[in-house]
Nucleic acid binder design. Structure first.
Lengths: 339, 339
DNA sequence: CTGAAAGCGCTTACAG
DNA sequence: CTGAAAGCGCTTACAG
């Protein structure tokens, strides 16, 4: 490493002091235009790159926020992350992102690191397994701001931005009911996870509101992944008479469900039909394409960032929960009840 | 912000000096076990979190690498990013990631920021539009290490990790040829972009090696996105007699091509068939599922990281280019030539 | 084994 | 308008 150029060296070259150079380079009003131009020219010629680490240490403002996510290669999260980065750049903030890999211990470790990196605030989407709230309490106890997005910890009473799991699933199932379906099942997530519970409630409420009995044998919990959808479908099949239609808790679960349907030699919509909470850009290319509730990942990312920035300006902690509606995407499925 | 606890405060509480506390906390051999335990206990009780910014400034080792990517919500990149983060964590490195959003000016700006953040080295996948090599030369001129992955700048003669675009496309097209196809078209990227050129060469060479004439009317360049695939297919249709099969330059382009085929009322494989350079987890769910060349995004990310780390240990710059083979995924398409 | 001191590269009052 | 000085919180030789 050839040593980088420092203010000191520029000061020597310009025959002036470090503080003058510092002020000149940051366009401080106390410095005369002439010397400013002069110094800036010299700095450029010497190939000066300010040491941001030193700047962060000595100045009050950090303009950095810590982002902790469970995954990156994930249809929802990758979009939310991109939106957060974009929004941060527009507002001249830096993002330090850490990836927990669905590992709660690693998540806690990353929070500690980010705290050490002196971020102004946190944007966090928790692990599937996060149970211990103490890492988050540590953030709050240092009076740093924290906004959860998508995956939250309810017990903490923090600000958060989530999609409307309950209403979105309610609307999705209602669409099928409006089209004449009555026997509807649910391949669900876990009820001890917020989004799983909310979606399931939406499903149940849609049936209740139309006085349609809920058949417990048609509801199976198991997770949010493709393999969980596959396992769920297999379990429903084993249990006996199938419902007419299944609402899956995620798009990935829908894919697994479709795979299972395929393997079982069943056909859609004759034997069974599928609608999905969660959409994908690939959906419209699939045969059949699935009627689905679309989550606004970018909107959630943007809103989470802006909510955090807003809270940064208030000294007293305020709690705000933003619920972003889902959008019903009507495709081929969910429309033709099989007699 | 309640001020964070510092070494100074711990030293006061422990009735000792800052340097002793510093050494005790970092388990330095010069400190007696008794005081170490004592100090560590006090530090814990006071809720000490080391200021990593200060540590980075005063110590030689940074163990931080800068990652610059054009996008995050991208099937290949999101996987590569995740693998890089994972590998970095395993080797106790931190990643500072910046997203250029396919904007070359922003990319240059991010590089400057990362340089200011004193990263040890760079992992970069360039923008589609990156033409000016000077930001990268600036990195090299500061004798920092730089490894390109996936999207590279050839003229720079840098270390890089890419997939085998040429051979992968060659193998993919050869598969169709082996199955009896002879009239094959190519919806290509751009030839002024490395991957576009390489894939096109692979396509052409596969035909040449079997003495099959190349019909220039069946090759259309236009880009790598879904919309480009759609436009490409439309253009081919307008030009007159279609080939039997089209090899697309990317999976996204394949999706666009399929959409266009659908709109045109054509059927697969009767009227036209499609194979794709680039795969997707959704592929197997599609009807038809596409025979495709699979890119090992995780492998490329991991190899790029490890190559950079290896180079960090050598003082003299060494140039190494790693080419990761693609894997042929045989699905429904590319197998049944229509008479 | 412990501590005083210098230094990392910058910013920011404070004098002049 | 310019500069000397203190300080950000740590690490690292160097004495003792």
């Amino acid at each position: 490493m050839s040593k980088p150029v420092t203010l000191k060296q520029i000061a020597a070259a310009a025959n002036t002091s470090v503080s003058t150079v510092s002020m000149a380079l940051s366009d401080h009003p106390h410095i005369s235009p002439v010397t400013k131009v002069e110094i800036q020219k010299i700095a450029k010629k010497m190939g000066y790159t300010p040491n941001l680490i030193a700047r962060k240490l000595s100045s009050r403002k950090k303009r950095t926020i810590g982002l902790v996510v469970p995954k990156v290669a994930h249809p929802f999260l990758s979009e939310a992350i991109e939106a957060i980065y974009d929004e941060a750049h527009k507002q001249h903030y830096e993002i330090f992102m850490m990836v927990s890999g669905e590992d709660a211990a690693l998540e806690a470790h990353h929070i500690k690191t980010l705290l050490g990196l002196q971020v102004d605030g946190f944007l966090i989407s928790v692990t599937e397994k996060t149970a211990d709230a103490s890492p988050f309490e540590a953030i709050l106890s240092k009076t740093k701001k924290l906004v959860f997005f998508d995956r939250i910890i309810e017990s903490l009473g923090c600000s958060s931005v989530v999609c409307d799991d309950y209403q979105g699933c309610y609307n999705l199932v209602s669409f099928a009911l409006d089209n004449g379906y009555t026997k509807i099942g649910h391949i669900a997530g876990y009820s001890d996870i917020y989004i799983g519970r909310e979606r399931r409630h939406g499903f149940e409420r849609a049936l209740m509101d139309r006085n349609i009995p809920l058949n417990p044998a048609w509801v199976v919990e198991g997770g949010f992944d493709q393999s969980d959808g596959h396992a769920g479908m297999m379990k429903l099949y084993e249990r006996g008479p199938l419902p007419q239609l299944i609402c899956t808790v995620s798009f990935a679960a829908a894919l697994g469900t479709l795979n299972a349907i395929h393997e079982l030699g069943l056909s859609i919509p004759r034997d069974i039909d599928v609608i999905s909470f969660g959409d994908s850009p690939y959906n419209s290319l699939m045969r059949p394409s699935l009627t689905a509730a679309h989550l606004d990942a970018q909107g959630i990312g943007r809103k989470a960032f802006n909510l955090l920035i807003e809270q940064l300006s208030h000294a007293e902690p305020t709690i705000e929960k933003i619920i972003v509606p889902t959008r019903l995407i009507i495709h081929e499925t969910g429309r033709l009840p099989s007699g």
